[in-house]
């Protein structure tokens, strides 16, 4: 079974067709990637999959169920969690608290539990704390747990965002340009982290500009250009596809690996 099915997804903004009947499947296993030049419609596609943007036409099927037009928080509760192109941290919370918010859909304490602190809520909070610290260590921010999120350098903010998304135990993790703004070393580490996430059973779908990251990390690639899917396949297949070469480099040479 596929984790995600995108069926003839179309989005028009006035006269502009940002996504033109895009279809592809994301299998349960491994890492998939959507690439394409600037303005190819990648972020629009992500916004429709995650419920932030209603499609003009087409359907999004997650875990065999139609989730087209479902609100983002409901989609998240089903196990599809996204990150954002520009890190959207909760600036007034600490690093640890940010990741704890990621546990939101896996926990249930409400206002009364906050005030009365019954035993089950204390256990839940202790478990939240434990999981959050584990994930912070997993992305390598262990010594920053009590720092304010806003005080982290940009590269670490991106990692924090990933830890926070993982706290929700997603079945499908959508990463919107996770390497944007990262230096070479940070990108290498990120690549390792993404592979470990996939190895632990979470399906990963990422949008990426950084060819090196995509070619080293992804198992399957969907290529968009001007809002249309122009190619799909393994990194090797995609790299040899003349249309892809044309789209990226005007037909001069293969994309850099």
């Amino acid at each position: 079974m596929n984790r995600l099915g995108v069926h003839a997804l179309t989005r028009r903004f006035g006269g502009l067709v940002a996504n033109d009947s895009i279809s592809f499947d994301v299998p349960v296993e491994g890492i998939s990637a959507v690439i394409g030049p600037n303005g190819a419609g990648k972020t629009t596609l992500f916004s429709m999959i995650s419920g932030f943007l209603e499609p003009s036409e087409g359907r999004v099927v997650f875990e065999g169920e139609d989730v087209t037009g479902v609100a983002p928080e409901r989609i998240a509760a089903r196990g599809l969690v996204r990150t954002f192109q520009l890190a959207q941290l909760f600036q007034n919370l600490t690093v640890l608290e940010n990741v704890k918010v990621g546990r939101h859909i896996r926990t249930k304490a409400g206002l009364w539990a906050a005030l009365a602190r019954p035993a089950w809520a204390r256990r839940e909070e202790a478990e939240t704390e434990r999981r959050a610290r584990e994930l912070i260590a997993f992305v390598g921010l262990g010594d920053q747990a009590d720092a304010r999120a806003a005080a982290l350098p940009y590269g670490q903010q991106r990692l924090l965002e990933i830890a926070r998304a993982l706290a929700a135990e997603p079945k499908l993790l959508l990463l919107d340009e996770p390497a944007a703004g990262l230096n070479h070393d940070e990108t290498e580490r990120l690549s390792g982290i993404i592979r470990r996430i996939a190895a632990q059973g979470t399906t990963v779908l990422l949008i990426e500009h950084d060819m090196k990251l995509v070619m080293n990390t992804a198992d399957r690639i969907v290529v968009l250009n001007f809002g249309r899917k122009i190619a799909e396949g393994t990194p090797t297949e995609v790299q040899g596809n003349p249309q892809v070469i044309e789209a990226y480099l005007g037909g001069v040479e293969t994309p850099h690996v």
């Binding site: 954002f84 007034n92 409400g110 909070e125």
Partner: peptide, 23 residues
């Protein structure tokens, strides 16, 4: 608490809070 973190989170980024399932 979970409640308090959720409301402080939405003041930081409504989109990110929704993406994590916060209504």
């Amino acid at each position: 608490s979970r409640f308090g973190r959720a409301i402080v989170a939405l003041s930081g980024s409504e989109d990110a809070a929704r993406a994590l399932g916060v209504d």
